[in-house]
Design a protein around this nucleic acid. Structure first.
Lengths: 221, 221
DNA sequence: TCCTTATCGATATTTATTTATCGATATCAT
DNA sequence: ATGATATCGATAAATAAATATCGATAAGGA
């Protein structure tokens, strides 16, 4: 209530926000191909969303286009990178050095998104003290010290469901303010900590369900 | 138009569908704890969605509850497993044996969701011909033969963005009807092939954006 | 047995998101 | 220079989803 200097950012709807990285991806391709301008119609033809929706999405970013020409590629790219936080690097740590944790550790793509994974933590002595993808895996007991030392605010949670809550508690104690949760369970955190739930089971459910419908439709034809 | 015997399935909204696995997860915990019944209020207290929303979600599944008692845990669990396709195993293959592909290959959780990853494919001779997590990695040239032989309809796409489209084309040629796409680019496929886009960049964008707002709000306080 | 209360299920309302409409404008071809 | 057209941006309409309301009902206690 007190201030809404950032309300213009706040109010980007989540569905729009989720499409912005796709526009960014396309824009950066077009930019490297030397394109100067791009219209919603062109984006629409490539990405498959309607031009109207794209225009509305871009309006949320504050980007300004020109009639008949479209948007300036370089400028739009910059705006998107700024909004998506790709320009300022954010440190993060991973808790849970299982398969998924290690995969995320080794995923180079994150650096393009401004995410720098500093280290991982685990309880398994087979893993702690080693390097994976050039990054160290520490014992979970070191979490608080390292997080506070480096002021890390983002934690990626990739432990089995059964340990998700206790791990989240440790993260909160360590000063983590945003948790990207890959465990398919809800975790409880204080109000000032943010949880982003990444649920592969949900996506799989959608896929599986659509596939069911697809095949039953085909049977009916 | 001709038949809508499956319309009751078709019309489950995607947001609802994405929540169903969370209910399932909770229900299976409660079931193993010996709970016989559960109410929307109780689910609400644990998962944090409103009881009203949960009741509406469950209504889509056809589950029937009892006043004052709630739903029968075992029955609801069964209904959810059926809708989510957890009861019938579906074979899938992975194309792209990079970090993410290997992680998904090794993820035991999928078998609980009815997904059985049969094998992976890659072009890198360092990887092909080897076993990872007990599953073989074949050269991409074997894809069509194996997919058709085993009648595999689901493909998980974990190659770098630059190769996503050509890989998707290979999958389509191999008879794949549903592609779970982890590359952060749009892929074009025939109408009878379904694509489920899994975009970590989108989730990260949401996280990053919310974190930005969180910190700017805190600065303003 | 009867009263209180928690809960469901159906319906209605509100809010969020997508899609459509249309005037203004800039570019291109004539 | 002029006209045709593609495009944006603002506004309006339609659709989808979340939330609220309320009567009916079943359980448990007085």
């Amino acid at each position: 209530m007190s201030s809404d200097s950032n309300s213009s950012i706040q109010q980007i709807p989540e569905p729009t926000l989720r499409r912005l990285p796709l526009y960014h991806q396309l824009l950066s391709e077009k930019h490297s191909e030397g394109a100067k301008n791009i219209s919603c119609t062109e984006i629409s033809n490539i990405l498959g969303f309607t031009a109207i929706q794209i225009r509305k999405d871009l309006a949320y970013t504050g980007a300004v286009g020109r009639s008949k020409t479209g948007y300036n590629v370089k400028e739009l790219l910059y705006i998107l990178e700024d909004i998506l936080g790709y320009t300022k690097t954010k440190d993060a740590l991973i808790v849970g050095a299982g398969n998924l944790g290690l995969a995320l550790m080794g995923y180079d793509g994150f650096k393009n998104y401004g995410l720098n994974i500093v280290a991982a933590f685990d309880t398994d002595p087979q893993k702690t003290g080693k390097l994976f993808h050039g990054k160290a895996v520490f014992d979970i007991s070191e979490l608080e010290k390292l997080a506070k030392e480096k002021g890390i605010k983002i934690g990626i949670l990739t432990v089995p469901s059964a340990f998700a809550q206790e791990t989240a508690d440790l993260m909160v104690n360590a000063g983590i303010k945003a948790i990207w949760n890959f465990a398919p369970v809800k975790i409880n955190v204080p109000d000032d900590v943010l949880v982003q739930h990444e649920n592969l089971a949900s996506s799989l459910a959608v896929l599986s369900h659509k596939l069911d419908n697809l095949t039953s439709v085909q049977r009916n034809e």
